[in-house]
Design a protein around this nucleic acid. Sequence first.
DNA 1: ATGCATGCAAAGACTTTGCAAATTC
DNA 2: GAATTTGCAAAGTCTTTGCATGCAT
Lengths: 155, 155
Amino acid sequence: MDRAECAVMEKFLKGGGLKVTRARKVVLEAFLELEGHMTAELLFTEVKKKDPGIGQATVFRTVKLLSEAGLAREACQDDGAKTYEHAFKHSHHDHLRCERCGKIVEFCDPTIEKAQEAIFVRYGFTPLEHKMQLIGLCAECAAGTGKPDAEGGKS
Amino acid sequence: MDRAECAVMEKFLKGGGLKVTRARKVVLEAFLELEGHMTAELLFTEVKKKDPGIGQATVFRTVKLLSEAGLAREACQDDGAKTYEHAFKHSHHDHLRCERCGKIVEFCDPTIEKAQEAIFVRYGFTPLEHKMQLIGLCAECAAGTGKPDAEGGKS
DNA sequence: ATGCATGCAAAGACTTTGCAAATTC
DNA sequence: GAATTTGCAAAGTCTTTGCATGCAT
């Protein structure tokens, strides 16, 4: 418990009459250590490395708590894999992904942000959030010098 | 078989040594009639209305063919529901969704398109596609005059 | 001490696959 | 006529839930 996220989580738990348990701490730690986007399954694997005694049900339950606490954000890849990413102090960044090697670049573009704002206004909507993914080929893959298929082998 | 999409599908099937079957026609018809985004389940329901004899396996198999043919596009909602939407001559439009009533507005904004292009260039990527969702509250829901919770009751 | 949380395993939801029969080319 | 496709149902994958026990407060 040494990061701001931990304090947020504790506050969230106590505020909701929930308990700060070891399992929840372990899941949060594992979540924080996995920098990027992770599937529930990967998170479970990491949690087990730290504490083999923790069951997947707990991981699933806890990651939902993380979402509610505002620490995690549920996302959904095109292939249907539900993933979680850090949400605390990561407000909204968008993703540029290489179709071939799976590389993910996170970016935030003010022009797009403003344009999105304009869209909300145009249709009379109150903005809440947005999600954007750009999918393309990174320079290496486009040049054919990247490793052929690091993890994009789905269909 | 009277729309351009049907021709595309036929061409795709024959080109791949696949057969144009009644079941596939029915699935394509149902898909075309369902204007918006549909889950595989909803598509299956529609298909059964047209021909109760068609099994869900066929629908699942066929909708994948539609994707391959470029007629359908797999999407994935935040709640994990895998959906399909029209892709033929719908290139890419983006989605503005009301968090509360579930309303979906499709739009296409040149400014954003251009900005996205710029992002690809900035990171040396070759553009393939993009997906964007804006989530907010529509005017009615923001004003509290919309129906409370048409279908957004998830968490 | 109280009551929420846990872990296991079973259940659940959704999608895919195997196989014999039917259909398309 | 040959081979792909179909429909049924079973299997598979991923996630959720039930329940007795364990922990945090």
